[in-house]
C-alpha cells in the first residue's frame, strides 16, 4: 500500500490521509467577479509538481505535500510555513 509521511505522526498508509487541494493564495475579495471566478473554479491541472494541502485524518493534522501528479511521487511533506525547517 502506498504510504505518506505526516510531519507529526510519521509514515502511514495513504488511506489515512485526505487531499485538501492545491495550495493557492486568495485574491483580495474585492477583486471583482471575473478574478474571483478564476480563483474558485480554474485550476492548473496539467501534470506537474504541485504543493497541496493534505490532512492526516485520525489526528486532523493539516500539512503541505509536494507531489508529482504524473507519477504520484511525494517529494516531501512539511507543516504550513515550515518548508525550510
Amino acid at each position: 500500500m502506498k504510504q505518506m509521511i505526516c510531519p507529526i505522526n510519521g509514515t502511514r498508509p495513504i488511506v489515512e490521509f485526505t487531499c485538501g487541494g492545491d495550495l493557492q493564495s486568495m485574491p483580495d475579495p474585492h477583486c471583482g467577479d471575473t478574478v474571483w471566478a478564476d480563483y474558485i473554479f480554474n485550476r492548473n491541472n496539467a501534470p506537474t509538481i504541485k504543493q497541496e494541502w493534505w490532512c492526516h485524518t485520525p489526528s486532523n493534522t493539516w500539512f503541505i505535500a509536494k507531489r508529482n501528479t504524473l507519477t504520484d511521487e511525494v517529494l516531501c511533506t512539511y507543516l504550513y510555513g515550515q518548508e525550510d525547517v
Binding site: M1, K2, I14, V15, T18, C19, N45, A46, P47, K50, E52, T69, L70, T71, D72
Partner: peptide, 13 residues
C-alpha cells in the same frame, strides 16, 4: 480516486 493523478494505475485499496 480521492486525489488528482494523471496516470491510469490501479490500487489494492
Amino acid at each position: 480516486d480521492p486525489y488528482e493523478l494523471h496516470a491510469s494505475r490501479s490500487t489494492l485499496e
